[in-house]
Design a protein around this nucleic acid. Structure first.
Lengths: 160, 160
DNA sequence: ACACGATCGTTGAGAATGTCAATGATCAAA
DNA sequence: TTTGATCATTGACATTCTCAACGATCGTGT
């Protein structure tokens, strides 16, 4: 019997993982998106943990840092979250002094989320680490490929 | 006061959503991946519901249809799921006669998941609908762009 | 033949997330 | 002013994630 546990290239002597990789699912854009996202998410969360952040809170903080002055509603829509989840995220960031709520003078129902200077500092450090980790994770991807990918993904992420 | 609720192109008369879209987050590969995936997942789940499937169960069924004969362990690893989640997924599919467990004669601990002929039929119908829905969702993406995207995403999804 | 540790599927518990309806405050328009 | 809509918030509930057990089975070494 052959039964090599690792390499074997006869009729179909591939590991189960390799055989699954040849499935038609692998041509499926949705599936690739899901799997790439899962890997990326796990890596990002691991890095951001050093700053007490997760991908969710990092995103909120990043949007609060720009002078965009988004309401919580805006954040929910943009991040595809339920408004109640944004409450928890902002509570957390505010509790750590990275962000504060300002009631919009133009509409006193809505809270504008703005970063504190501490929040800004945390964000730039986290952004640097996250960018490095991403480069490391995708080290087999050239810069040109990466740029093309970003451009194409924008089409999917923002289908006008 | 200007305060147009819709269009306004002066110094910065853009809607909050448009302003958020100019955030640096939009250059972030991880973020784009997450957002594109969220949209794709929602659309796919909506379509698959017609067949009593979700993206998860669809993936399991698709992998069971090939002659790959994956164990539940293989499925868990490939789909980035906990083995206990695979149990529930296979229970469901098996309960509806789309899939069955065969104990691997080479290792009687492990269950090989294989599709029934009903499962095969459901899958091809679901695959057709899902593919159409995806084309509709990404109608602004050309075929060339789509092919490039699939190729690039494979690099991220399978970083050898 | 036997004992050892590792692996597979399964179960269950507890945490984290997602989803949804209801509420008070505020707004915009009739 | 009244009516209906929108915002943030809360709480209930379902779904999902994560982990630690367990019995059955395997492979290895003795």
């Amino acid at each position: 019997m052959v039964s090599g546990t690792e390499p074997e290239e006869a009729t179909d002597g591939a590991s189960p993982a390799e055989r699954l990789r040849r499935s038609e699912l692998t041509d499926d854009l949705s599936f690739l998106l899901a799997r790439a996202n899962a890997l990326s998410l796990a890596a990002a969360n691991a890095v951001l943990a050093r700053h007490g952040l997760r991908v969710r809170s990092y995103s909120v903080l990043a949007l609060a840092v720009d002078d965009t002055r988004p309401s919580q509603r805006d954040l929910a829509a943009f991040l595809s979250l339920d408004p109640s989840q944004v409450v928890a995220l902002v509570d957390d960031l505010q509790g750590r002094g990275l962000v504060r709520r300002e009631t919009d003078p133009a509409d006193r129902r809505s809270n504008v989320v703005v970063a504190t200077s501490e929040g800004r500092d945390v964000l730039v450090a986290a952004r640097r680490d996250a960018a490095n980790a991403e480069r490391e994770l995708h080290r087999r991807v050239t810069n040109d490929e990466r740029d093309a990918l970003v451009k194409l993904l924008r089409l999917l992420a923002f289908p006008n």
